[in-house]
């Protein structure tokens, strides 16, 4: 067993885990944060995407012990005081989700995009988010939602 101490959504968690435990399973099974979904466990679908120290990673391709001493953010961190995050709001308004299974990973990738490249257009959005597979939407409404989300993030940035 390995000692693990990791900040998840701003709260320090500590556990003894089998070192082979995947970060995705640590979040879901040990912490009950089932918002992070597992779709392929070999890094292609993107459903399990979370942020580690602010950068998107596949939680299925990360051992929980690799997150030791780091800070992890999951979909559960997005809404604050009951209010949807502007990215979540944009997905709701633009019908950017259907079954909702790929959505949490996608939102985390968009969160990173908004932080690092909020000015990008539709083609760049498509390129950047090509590691998050959605089988339901055909992507059009997702691109609408991301465009709207980046707009609102930019507006907030301008206002501050």
């Amino acid at each position: 067993m390995a000692e693990l101490s990791v900040s998840v959504n701003g709260e320090l968690t500590a556990a003894q885990v089998d070192p082979r435990t995947l970060l995705s399973d640590y979040l879901r099974d040990h912490l009950g944060l089932t918002g992070t979904h597992v779709g392929c466990e070999h890094g292609y679908c993107g459903a399990c995407t979370v942020l580690v120290d602010g950068a998107s990673v596949r939680s299925c391709l990360t051992l929980a012990v690799q997150a030791d001493g780091r800070s992890v953010d999951t979909v559960e961190s997005l809404a604050s005081n009951g209010e949807l995050h502007p990215i979540q709001q944009a997905f709701k308004e633009c019908h950017g989700l259907q079954c909702g299974f790929c959505t949490p990973g996608l939102l985390m990738s968009v969160l990173e995009l908004a932080a690092t490249n909020p000015g990008c257009g539709r083609d760049e959005i498509r390129e950047h988010l090509s590691g998050n597979v959605c089988r339901c939407t055909g992507y059009h409404h997702i691109v609408d939602a991301v465009e709207a989300a980046l707009n609102s993030v930019r507006e907030q940035g301008d206002g501050s």
Binding site: L33, T34, V38, E76, T103
Partner: peptide, 19 residues
């Protein structure tokens, strides 16, 4: 009208079988 299930799905509060 906006979908009524989206709120919970967007928050990660959906409840799938694996959950």
């Amino acid at each position: 009208v906006a979908r009524r299930q989206d709120d919970r799905l967007l928050r990660g509060d959906g409840r799938y079988v694996a959950d």
